[in-house]
């Protein structure tokens, strides 16, 4: 556009943009190098070291940490750490799926509000908890689930928990806390996609004899797939590494990879093993990332 108006050949304009683009991106690139790539490399090196006697780092290279991670310990093979990894994966997946299932109807509801003001109010209601510190929010869940509140009373009436017991710590409490934490991450990108949905396509699908499921699958999902993808990534990745919610609501019963890593760096003071766990987590996240990228819909939509 610019080139047409100012009589510059498109090639030279593009070349100039390339140069000025690099100059503008340089600060960002430097930040990436200093705060992502260098720490990553040092983490990789650290994971090859071992723990000294007093929690210091012994820099002689060894693969011991990875062997331990895979379950080859002093007392033979036991895959405890692998179980924790798998459990984290499952927890993150369940959270993500629950957030998707909750977000679609929620976003359709908000997008169908008539006035801009009521849409705004609904979006604020979604984002406000997101502005509160996650620790405070999670402690609030403890209050909600404590034995004097209606939920715990109902559960004990139903005979699910003993009289006077709280609903935490446990898998249900962790699940609730995780979904509540990550719902905005899923709902906001999805809402952005649903708000500019082309409604002619669902209508055309309906006109062409499609059932409700088919309308969603063929006319709504392909249009919202990018929002969904963004939401899944920014929900799934932090959910994998979450340790605050599991710590407060899961207690000692519910160890996830996030808690394990935190433990290595704080109490156990086994930094090399923590580094190895972190790298394993990163690898797992990256793999699931790739899985989402090559999923069927993204290929078709491209």
């Amino acid at each position: 556009m610019l080139s047409r108006h100012f009589w510059i050949s498109p090639d030279s304009a593009k070349a100039r943009h390339r140069v000025s683009g690099l100059a503008l991106a340089l600060p960002g690139i430097l930040v990436l190098v200093f705060f992502l790539i260098i720490p990553f490399i040092s983490l990789a090196f650290l994971s090859l070291a071992s723990r000294g006697q007093f929690g210091d780092v012994n820099w002689s290279p060894t693969l011991e940490n990875y062997r331990r991670l895979l379950g080859f310990g002093l007392y033979g093979w036991s895959p405890d750490y692998l179980f924790i990894l798998l459990r984290s994966l499952r927890e993150a997946l369940v959270t993500t799926v629950a957030c998707v299932l909750l977000s679609y109807p929620l976003c359709f509801y908000i997008a169908s509000r008539k006035t801009a003001f009521s849409r705004f109010v609904w979006l604020v209601l979604i984002t406000v908890p997101f502005c509160t510190n996650v620790v405070i929010r999670t402690y609030a869940w403890q209050l909600v689930l404590n034995p004097k509140m209606i939920f715990a009373k109902l559960a004990s009436l139903a005979g699910l928990i003993p009289e006077g017991a709280p609903l935490y710590p446990g898998a249900l409490a962790v699940f609730l806390g995780m979904v509540a934490t990550f719902l905005p991450f899923m709902a906001l990108p999805l809402y952005a996609a649903i708000e500019r949905l082309n409604w002619a396509l669902p209508e055309a699908a309906k006109d062409l004899y499609a059932s409700r499921l088919r309308i969603f699958q063929k006319a709504i999902l392909p249009q919202t797939i990018y929002g969904l993808q963004a939401g899944v990534v920014i929900t799934f990745v932090p959910a994998m590494a979450m340790f605050v919610v599991t710590d407060i609501l899961g207690g000692a019963k519910y160890m996830l990879i996030g808690n394990l890593i935190q433990l290595q760096f704080s109490q156990t003071r086994d930094w090399p093993f923590g580094a190895a766990l972190s790298l394993a987590l990163m690898l797992l996240t990256l793999l699931s990332f790739l899985f989402f990228r090559v999923s069927r819909f993204s290929r078709k939509a491209a």
Binding site: A200, K218, A301
Partner: peptide, 21 residues
């Protein structure tokens, strides 16, 4: 009768073709 049961089909003004098909 809902739209997906009617023997009536529409050519929309914007065509509403499915872009991913």
């Amino acid at each position: 009768l809902p739209a997906n049961k009617r023997e009536v089909n529409t050519v929309f003004q914007c065509f509403a073709l499915f872009p991913h098909l």
